[in-house]
Design a binder for these strands. Structure first.
Length: 455
RNA sequence: GGCGACGUAGCCAAGUGGUCUAAGGCGGGGGUUUGCAAAACCUCUAUUCGGCGGUUCGAAUCCGCCCGUCGCCUCCA
């Protein structure tokens, strides 16, 4: 398959360098609930894993939690909650949200606070080799010593200086140097290190965790487009300096960012977020995933209730096709769905072109219904639909939300309605149907009898 | 200011030199089916791809300029 590589700025044929393929995905900073932007990123890399596996390639996926950092400390101070409690709470809200979206867990979800040894060891290596230096109990990375610094993001150091937007820090040799280790400030959490008490800088954690769980080189490194600079650029610098293995990541894959109406990026700092938890109150996991997959992962997506609602309606159609009774079962004619798999694979092989893959799936559903109306056996079509939507992580289960009428009651009402219909008392029949609708039950009369479902 | 992305039907969104008088979804119109619905099926819904030039036998697709929107430039998925 082909994957767009941020490092080379082009689509490249994906060739694994290891088995299983080693994938590292930048996770969240756990100071607040996850929002749909986090969901987008996580779902995309889960999809990449699932699709590679579908193609017979094993994948080991690691996604971290940044559970100690400035924002966590600040938020804890504001709210009076202990920083560690805050952080663990939001590890929990993240995992819950992802469960709600039917995202499979990564193979490893390391947390910075539990990775101090490998982090300190890696910083030590960098200090030893002269790539980094200690100053005032902190450790900084010597950016200027790196001749290829900027290769991922396409930035130059001189330009960074020009802007002088970098925090003046008297301890740094150069303003563009970044912290690997931050000396403890009063009241802040700290760990002991050869340079004194402190905590890791933001970027080093990922280098250390990727190295510990995946080795000195990874096949795929993923994250949001907003992480390219400085986070990933700095990871490249650190990891490659420390291990001399180049490139640190063979394929850099970045997802586009989610925006809000008004076209601004959804972000915690702008306060314009929709949490996953809130979204799941209104929309099914299948609908949210479908909405994500209806645009390409590298394009910016815009949050809009109308689009989510449209996705919810679209997903109902898929569910209907997957779950409809196969009236033509055992008929002489069988619908052959194999051509659809080919279209699906071609689309997905092209840098995970989910919109095109979905086009194939929606064509499949229409063909299933058409075959159904012609009395053709649709078992293979339904199997194919399950197979392909399964790769996309869609369950196609009828939602049990809305209407909590119990089954016996519904069945009793339907029986009453049926006898009214037999007597051609349509007024009564329609009245019962209206009642059911108001209870959140949708019914349909078919030649095989009346069926119902919750909506 | 630097780097980058984007602008396709009412909305969302693929397509990046001929097969495009442009996929798919949502919405809408008409028809079939139904006691009526719902669901489903059939059918119609962009001669046109932000604007203007250019290259080419041929451009939504390449080049130039312009207009508009967004992202990153040490908080960020």
């Amino acid at each position: 398959m082909k994957l767009y590589n941020t490092l080379t700025r082009k689509k490249e044929e994906f060739k694994r360098i290891s088995d299983p393929v080693r994938m590292y995905v930048c996770g969240v900073t756990t100071y607040d609930e996850p929002h749909l932007g986090h969901a987008l990123a996580t779902v995309i890399f889960e999809l990449l894993q699932s699709y590679l596996e579908y193609r017979g390639i094993n994948v080991r996926r690691v996604q971290n939690f940044t559970d100690v950092d400035d924002k966590i400390i600040d938020r804890a101070a504001e709210t009076g909650v202990g920083w560690y409690d805050l952080t663990q709470e939001h590890v929990g809200t993240f995992l819950e949200a992802m469960d709600g979206l039917n995202v499979r867990r990564a193979d490893v979800h390391p947390r910075v606070t539990e990775e101090m040894e490998p982090i300190i060891e890696l910083i030590g290596k960098l200090v030893e080799s002269g790539a980094a230096y200690e100053a005032g109990g902190s450790v900084y990375y010597r950016v200027r010593r790196d001749e290829d610094y900027g290769k991922l993001s396409g930035r130059t150091i001189d330009h960074m200086d020009e802007l002088a937007r970098l925090e003046p820090d008297l301890l740094k040799e150069n303003p563009e140097d970044f912290a690997l280790w931050k000396a403890q400030k009063p009241g802040e959490p700290y760990w002991d290190s050869p340079w004194g008490p402190g905590r890791p800088g933001w970027h080093i954690e990922c280098s250390a965790m990727a190295r510990r769980y995946l080795g000195d080189q990874v096949d795929i490194h993923g994250g949001g487009l907003d992480l390219v600079f400085p986070h990933h650029e700095n990871e490249v610098a650190q990891s490659e300096s420390a291990t001399s293995v180049v490139p640190f990541a063979r394929y850099w894959v970045h997802n586009g960012l989610l925006r809000m109406a008004g076209d601004e990026k959804m972000s915690k700092s702008l306060g314009n977020v929709v949490t996953v938890r809130d979204a799941l109150k209104s929309y099914s996991a299948d609908a949210i995933r479908l909405w994500i997959f209806q645009s390409h992962y590298r394009s910016p997506a815009t949050y809009d209730d109308e689009n989510l609602a449209a996705a919810e309606r679209a997903v109902r159609r898929l569910r209907q096709a997957a779950n409809v009774t196969n009236v033509g079962a055992g008929a002489g004619d069988r619908y052959d769905a194999n051509h659809v798999r080919q279209r699906f694979v071609e689309a997905m092989d092209d840098d995970l072109n989910t919109p095109r893959a979905l086009a194939a799936i929606f064509d499949l559903t229409r063909e299933i219904f058409t075959a159904q109306s012609n009395g053709v056996d649709i078992a293979d079509g339904q199997g194919m639909l399950r197979e392909l939507t399964g790769v996309l992580g869609l369950t196609l289960e009828e939602p049990q939300l809305g209407g909590d009428a119990d089954v016996a009651e519904v069945e009793a009402m339907l029986a009453k309605r049926e006898s009214a219909r037999q007597e051609r008392d349509f007024a009564t029949a329609d009245e019962i149907r209206d009642q059911l609708i108001s209870m959140g039950i949708e019914i349909s009369d078919t030649p095989q009898g009346t069926t119902w479902r919750r909506v």
